[in-house]
């Protein structure tokens, strides 16, 4: 539908594990992902899925071990200030997403001051405009974060991220610490920003209902890899990968007629330090075959704009052609 804004190719991030030996934590492994201009892409996964590390690589806060990220066709280098300010973070509130000693105004101005955007005299007006955009009055400008509610703090965080007019927001669990009714306000704000300003958003969360509500497309991660990508409604209506199926079945739904599914996923999420061979999901997979234990399935097209990495889905197609999103 739209142009591709962000192109991620072969992105891999390994961390050295402290202690004996040369063990490595495979946080993100060989991820290919396109983010389209103006879309909200949900990235969902459980602990150790690598979703946060993927977000930090997009933000230039973590240097990938290998692989590339490009923004609008340009190779992303965090040292380039123009590219750098094109991607802005929104973090989970409650654990220091704002400097507790800075006033709201100063936090929102930070990017403008740091990069010399606009004349110094115009910056105050821009801050007021940004605060209004996120639904806050300018009178809050002189407050410190401790005087604000969780929802207000998250709005300030979003205003500060919008200040340098980014092309992409990377939001990592931005509503997880909020009460349901406040969470609704922030989700509405994200939806409005995309609708009115065409901001592209990568929305990272463990909360499936938030993704289902907000995202246009969803990428499901498991132990460092993307195992399924597709339009949200299609994936939620008919999840293809057995992990996605299990994840959706396990998610609590506000519908008391849908109690727990009779067959729950057993076992633990594997550690990304020694991920299982072949498909990382095979030890928990109810339909795994021998091939799954030895050979890693590639992320292949399984339907219109849908990709999945599962031998049982792609094996039926002869000579599957790798297709990028």
């Amino acid at each position: 539908m739209n142009d591709v804004l962000i192109e991620v190719r072969g992105l891999t991030k390994q961390f050295r594990v402290p202690g004996r030996g040369r063990r490595r934590l495979h946080a993100v492994a060989d991820v290919d992902l396109d983010v389209r201009s103006g879309e909200i892409l949900g990235v969902v996964g459980e602990s150790g899925s690598g979703k946060t590390t993927l977000g930090r690589c997009l933000l230039g806060l973590t240097a990938p071990t290998s692989g590339t990220i490009s923004i609008g066709g340009q190779y992303f280098q965090p040292s380039d200030p123009v590219l750098r300010r094109a991607v802005q973070p929104v973090f989970q509130d409650s654990f220091g997403s704002l400097d507790p000693r800075w006033t709201v105004r100063r936090s929102v101005r930070e990017a403008l001051d740091a990069q010399g955007i606009g004349a110094p005299g115009e910056r105050d007006a821009r801050v007021t405009e940004l605060l209004e955009q996120v639904g806050l009055g300018a009178e809050l400008g002189e407050s410190r974060p401790s005087a604000l509610s969780g929802g207000q703090r998250q709005r300030v965080g979003i205003a500060a991220a919008l200040a340098p007019r980014p092309k992409l927001l990377v939001a990592d669990e931005p509503v997880s610490a909020l009460d349901v009714s406040v969470q609704a306000q922030i989700l509405n704000l994200f939806a409005a920003l995309r609708r009115n300003q065409g901001v592209t958003i990568v929305f990272i969360t463990h909360d499936l209902s938030v993704i289902e509500h907000l995202a246009d497309r969803v990428a499901v991660m498991y132990v460092g890899r993307i195992i399924e990508v597709g339009p949200t409604d299609a994936v939620f209506a008919a999840p293809a990968h057995p992990y996605t199926q299990a994840l959706l079945a396990a998610a609590p739904h506000p519908d008391p007629t849908r109690r727990l599914p009779p067959k729950l996923l057993t076992g633990e999420i594997p550690s990304p330090i020694d991920p299982p061979s072949g498909c990382a999901f095979h030890p928990r997979c109810p339909i795994a075959i021998d091939r799954c234990t030895t050979q890693r399935p590639a992320l292949l097209q399984i339907g219109p704009s849908r990709l999945a990495a599962c031998h049982l889905l792609t094996a039926v197609e002869h000579l599957p052609v790798p297709v990028t999103t």
Binding site: E46, H206, A250, A251, P252, L260, L264, L265, E268
Partner: peptide, 11 residues
């Protein structure tokens, strides 16, 4: 807890 683990604990 993670979603799949949460389901196990609730069960």
């Amino acid at each position: 807890l993670d979603v799949t683990i949460q389901a196990q604990i609730l069960a």
